[in-house]
Amino acid sequence: MDAIADPNFKHQGNKLNAVEESPSLLTVVIDITPQLWTEFDGKKGKKGNILDVLKALIVFLNAHLAFNISNQVAVIAAHSQGIKYLYPKSGSNSNASELDDDHNDHYETNTDKFIISKNMYRRFRNVDETLVEELYTLFKEEKKNVGKLTQKSTLAGGMSAALAYTDRVTREMETMSLKSRIMVITCGSEKNNREEIFQYIPIMNCIFSATKIKCPIDVVKVGGSKESTFLQQTTDATNGIYLHVTSTNGLLQYFSIAMFIDPSLRQIIVKPNKGSVDFRTSCYVTGRVVAVGYICSVCLCVLSIIPPGNKCPACDSEFDERVIAKLKKKPVVPRLAKKKSSGHISK
């Protein structure tokens, strides 16, 4: 009789509640630098690869919203001249985006009637419409930017903003125990290794703050070389997923299989990025990869050799002579010398 007594049922009810998923925030940072995508188009011999990615992204966002009524999304575009919030709409031209949501709706439904059907679920439509519209204006602007000077990618800026946004939303929804994650979509090019150097410190900083606010960063790299040192390190350190796809065909499937693994399940499920991550560093002077090196205690630059003149080449601080002498002495192993000498004698 005890088995069907009231308390047992109540207990079960509680358990069900606990299992219910907590809401989550998905922030997508997408690199839409036209230069990269056209390069990729050229290599694939197919135009409009970015459209495939964006289509897949929109479906992906809708799917995320469909999981839980309080799920949220945000999309940040890193373009050639800066970053831009695609959703929520950046309010520089209009008033507060959230307050004027209804008003915007009216306006948009009038202009874009044919893009998105009115019968669509409202939450999907809100996101999709804003996204499409903002992308449209962004690409129009990009047209003017052709030929402007770009020295580095703006992806790190986008990631920084995504982290700040995540921090803000988590703070605002403290009572709901919101989970959050960031997804970075980028297009690989063959020659971006050089410009990656400028991104090293900002991306590292992003990694540390992401681990601090417990927000995994997932990376999808379309095309290009398979490895992306910094982004792989990012996913490794933040418990994220690194996914490299060679073509945009069936991207949605990749998204839905790899990217929907809940962060709490990631220890159990086999992730696509299981493999080695390049953690090597290179010497400041010679540029060689270092396994055992010397580190300047002041500026932390890595050296494979003891620099000439006992001066740090990066920060110019003079090293303690005695310590240097000790370091220089090390390779001479006394025992080895003995052996050699004994060998000579025997000969």
């Binding site: 800066g82 580095k152 703006t154 920084s160 900002p202």
Partner: peptide
Amino acid sequence: ILHNCPGCESKPTI
């Protein structure tokens, strides 16, 4: 926490 200025990082020039 971040130690990055999002604005400076999103400038295309150094």
